[in-house]
Simulated assay, not measured.
Amino acid sequence: MTELRIAIVGFGKIARDQHVGAIAATAGATLAAVASRNASLPGVPHFATIEELLEKGPPIDAVSLCTPPQVRRAQAAAALAAGKHVMLEKPPGTGVAELDPLIAMAEEAKRTLFATWHSRYAPAVEPARAWLLTQRIKSVHINWKEDVRVWHPGQGWIWEPGGLGVFDPGINALSILTRILPRPVFVTAAELAFPANCQAPIAANLTLSDIGGLPVTAEFDFRQTGPQSWDILVETDQGRMTLSGGGRRMAIDGETVAEAPDQEYRELYGRFVKLTATGARDVDLAPLRLVADAFLLGRRNIVEPFVD
């Protein structure tokens, strides 16, 4: 089996913490280069930009874009134009429409474009989806709260236009929601809390529904200290299902029925390797559309400035 030679573009916290180890643990994948202005990896060829990588770098088959979302569209276009497969960290871009030209480019070039949602690969997500298919769902509530200073220290891009603010983690919850529910949901109202010195929200409350009127609510907050909260509660006619730990544990009425260690990024790269074998594409934009609609419908409230 030929190894898929992958270059990581953007070598920040998520690339170091998750992508490097996941590539090393994935059969059929190898890390061939890194492109980053500010960081490198010992023993791996390094280039400052994706342009330099594509022009002067070693032979590669694919790029994994881990840069801030504001610059990913242009980088993905450059990689596709050079005949490379492309994996996009979440969110896949700063807007929904900018993905359409990339999908068209990938189709024309017969190359893979993979918009990843790592939380969908948490071990309890598929068991939850299967169980909910057999239930009458009565309501859903998402409680997704974490400390931005722990997870995004010094990352000013997250507060700029396109950085998403609290929706950077919140979109993980929405990616799970859109996977486990049997019918599509849509946003009906939103309250967004913007720090006075930021262009992206630090907290958000969403109201959603499906075509049948299912009540869905979500609370996102970047100001949580102490224990972090990544929970989805689903009330059904057969009891309450709880997905906790970002999708790692599933319980029915408090009794654990599915739990396993985190292998989300290893699963992502396994999927990427399979997609590239045939040049197939996997670009589900449902979570990003929900975020876009939250911004479109959201009532904006100004709160105290954020100081990192």
Rank of each mutant, 00 (worst) to 15 (best):
K274N: 08
D231V: 13
A200L: 04
A294L: 02
R271D: 11
P261R: 10
V291S: 05
G279Y: 10
L206S: 13
L268A: 05
E235M: 09
F272S: 07
R248D: 08
A258F: 05
A203K: 10
G246K: 07
A280D: 15
A286Y: 00
A294I: 03
D237R: 10
D282N: 10
F222R: 11
G270N: 13
T207N: 05
D231H: 08
L285I: 06
I232G: 05
L288K: 08
L285F: 08
P215K: 11
D262P: 03
A277G: 06
V283E: 10
G279K: 11
A200F: 04
R289Q: 15
R266P: 00
G212L: 10
Q263W: 06
E267Y: 06
F295D: 06
V234F: 11
E259I: 13
Q228D: 11
F295M: 09
T278A: 14
F220G: 05
G254D: 13
A218W: 02
V283M: 10
L233G: 07
W230H: 15
G213L: 02
Q238G: 08
L214R: 06
E219N: 09
L243F: 03
D253A: 07
A258C: 09
A251T: 14
A218F: 06
S229F: 12
G239A: 10
S244P: 07
R248W: 00
A196W: 00
Q224D: 01
Q263R: 15
T207A: 14
D221F: 01
L275C: 05
G246L: 12
D237Q: 13
R271I: 02
V216P: 02
V291K: 12
E259P: 06
I232Q: 10
P261G: 07
V291R: 05
L206F: 08
V291Q: 03
L208V: 01
L285D: 05
R271Q: 12
A294W: 01
L214E: 13
A251P: 10
D231S: 12
D262A: 04
E235V: 08
V257G: 08
D231E: 14
I211Q: 14
G226C: 11
D221V: 04
V216E: 05
F272A: 11
G239W: 01
S244Y: 11
L268S: 06
P195C: 02
L208D: 05
L268N: 12
S209G: 10
V234Q: 05
T217A: 06
L243E: 04
E219D: 11
F295Q: 01
E259W: 11
T217R: 07
S209W: 00
D210R: 08
Q228C: 05
D221P: 04
P195W: 01
G245M: 06
E267F: 01
E267G: 10
